[in-house]
Nucleic acid binder design. Structure first.
Length: 350
DNA sequence: AACACGAACAACCGCATTAAT
DNA sequence: TATTAATGCGGTTGTTCGTGT
């Protein structure tokens, strides 16, 4: 037996909201609040034949004050992209980092534009590279030295398009993830994004045709692995209606950010190498800084699949960290401020 | 002008999680 | 502790609008 429907489907209106419905819902909530019960809400508003769920969605995504629609800035683009690669399609967490944006808005924006922008840039580079490789092959077949275009000899004179995969940061990933340290895993991420690659059927795995940090992908999958192994209840970051981000924990089994950094042995802020295809060629030293493998975009340390680093101490040995739990909030606040200065993104309330 | 197509966005649906009892 | 209902979330679908032919 399935669960009971949240409302009488036969007596609720579906489809786009009319301005009159918007006005009714908005004025009611502004006067009386939601009452903490969305299901009961529409029954209190005369003439509003909507499901409570629909009311909630309409309010959160459209009617709520301080909602921004469209006009995503370049900075927001970068942030969304960084976070997506870091934590995946956890739109509510991503939205928590973008004041005034809703998860639905960001999700739509990603699906309709950013994803294509990202893949498009990659494909452009791929095409350029193919042309370059083709040209070089032509030169070679005319009698010049036969060089593999990926050989060090060539790379000293002209950088091949295919980037060296970065040396993985010494994050103490588990053994079972060792197999993820390869190009195939990376390919899968972009395939997941909807990409199709010209060498999909080519047998040579030595030629990466995508540019993304292996450590980033490794981390993403690692997080998913760790989630399954995590014990205890999980609480996570929520965005209150007012826009504040609440700090949560996972069953009191947290460690401080600095401890995680020390445990992992890598820089707190890790460059998102390999994102050039998205950010453009001219980003130079202004590469997007992300939390990399050691921190999340938010302070959602307990988020079940967030971008947190989960060194072994977190995954398997939580003891000894309870006493520093209260330090976490302060350190998060400091880190948050560092990453997202108030003048740029507004204050993040912890 | 009519049509086809794709992009953008709003809304819905089902499932997982959480809270209340 | 088990059960039930509300809420939150992410994936998906439906609708509208703009553009090209």
């Amino acid at each position: 037996m399935g669960r009971a429907p949240c409302c009488d489907k036969a007596n609720v209106k579906k489809g786009p909201w009319s301005p009159e419905e918007d006005a009714k819902l908005k004025s009611y909530i502004e006067k009386h609040g939601t009452g903490g019960n969305w299901i009961a809400l529409p029954t209190k508003i005369a003439g509003l034949k909507r499901c409570g769920k629909s009311c909630r969605l309409r309010w959160l995504n459209y009617l709520r004050p301080n909602i921004k629609h469209g006009g995503f800035s370049e900075e927001e683009d970068k942030l969304i992209c960084s976070l997506y690669i870091s934590i995946g399609s956890r739109w509510s967490v991503i939205a928590a980092q973008l004041p005034g944006r809703t998860d639905n808005d960001i999700k739509n924006y990603w699906n309709t534009r950013l994803k294509k922008k990202l893949l498009g840039r990659h494909r452009n580079k791929e095409q350029q590279a193919r042309r370059g490789a083709s040209l070089k092959q032509n030169m070679n077949t005319r009698g010049s030295t036969v060089n593999n275009i990926y050989s060090p000899l060539v790379s000293t004179q002209q950088q091949p398009y295919w980037p060296e995969l970065p040396v993985l940061a010494p994050v103490p990933y588990s053994n079972q993830l060792a197999s993820l340290n390869d190009h195939e895993s990376i390919r899968k991420l972009l395939i997941k994004l909807g990409g199709k690659f010209s060498d999909d059927n080519q047998p040579n795995p030595q030629v990466p045709n995508i540019e993304i940090s292996a450590s980033t992908v490794q981390q993403q999958i690692y997080e998913q692995e760790v989630v399954a192994a995590k014990v205890g209840h999980t609480r996570y970051c929520t965005e209150e209606a007012a826009g504040g981000v609440n700090m949560m924990d996972f069953g009191g089994q947290s460690s401080t950010y600095s401890e995680q950094v020390m445990a992992s042995g890598i820089s707190p802020l890790q460059r998102l190498d390999g994102m050039e295809f998205f950010y453009g060629e001219d980003m130079g030293n202004d590469k997007m800084l992300i939390a990399g493998s050691t921190s999340s975009g938010s302070c959602c340390w307990g988020s079940d699949t967030s971008s947190l680093v989960y060194p072994p101490l977190l995954a398997s040995n939580y003891e000894g960290h309870l006493q520093v739990q209260d330090q976490l909030q302060g350190e998060c606040a400091a880190f948050q401020e560092f990453r997202y200065p108030e003048e740029q993104y507004g204050a993040v309330h912890l």
